[in-house]
Design a protein around this nucleic acid. Structure first.
Lengths: 133, 133
DNA sequence: CCGTATCCGATGCGATACTG
DNA sequence: CAGTATCGCATCGGATACGG
């Protein structure tokens, strides 16, 4: 048998997001947090500079983008390449691990975007039956 | 050509999470929020009752689980089935749409869990080089 | 251009208590 | 059992200002 990486249920394997104290839960939150998924998604197409990224991820503040990038860099998903020129130029790109994660997030994003009509319908029905009470 | 559901870049198609005002962004946040992903993941294996779910998603409070379930139900990802018995019994299960989403989230979760060693290594390296400054 | 520092309001979220 | 209501702290997160 091989013990590579099957689990996540109620198993006693090394990492399990469903367990309160598991570090994988923190990392999952970095990826799926409000800006994490969008940042990784934006970088999936290629390396981007700070302000390019900021324009692409519409609505993100400098503070949050910076914070998000730090967390993702620390987790080894994003690589930061600073050139000591003037004016400074900094490129962000996905690491191989980051690409894998981003690919999955993009899949999820596309799926959601493609089914928003269904979601909106469901919401309308929900609100109608509830509002009518 | 078919216009089923390809997009998400800077296209002008109906829904684009990268755009600030797009409703798809809200939905994505429901899915990927702190408890959304775990709740959907837990329900992937089958229908669960409120307190079963609560035990399974370790650390979630009644309030947040309730709130999360409402959001997911409203978005049409979770179906709530209440039986008017005493004591009351309420089962939550994924809708077909919810199953699709959950499947992708589970994939992401398993990937993260399976690569936490890499992430932890990256963090250690990051913290060492930064702490040494 | 690439950020960090500070202020401060909005929201998230857990703890607790209470209802059907 | 399956929730809702309320409280209060903590974190999120935008706006602004400043520094390399």
């Amino acid at each position: 048998m091989d013990t590579t990486q099957e689990h996540s249920e109620a198993l006693d394997l090394p990492f399990n997001v469903f367990a309160k104290a598991c570090p994988s839960r923190i990392t999952l939150e970095h990826l799926t947090g409000r800006w994490g998924a969008l940042t990784l998604g934006a970088l999936y197409e290629g390396s981007l500079r700070f302000n390019e990224l900021r324009r692409r991820v519409d609505g993100v503040s400098e503070k949050m983008l910076s914070q998000t990038l730090h967390a993702l860099e620390r987790d080894g998903l994003v690589h930061r390449e600073a050139q000591p020129t003037n004016p400074p130029r900094v490129d962000y790109e996905l690491t191989p691990l980051g690409r894998e994660v981003a690919k999955r997030l993009i899949g999820l994003i596309h799926f959601v975007e493609g089914h928003m009509a269904d979601v909106l319908d469901a919401r309308r029905r929900y609100d109608e039956t509830r509002g009518a009470l």
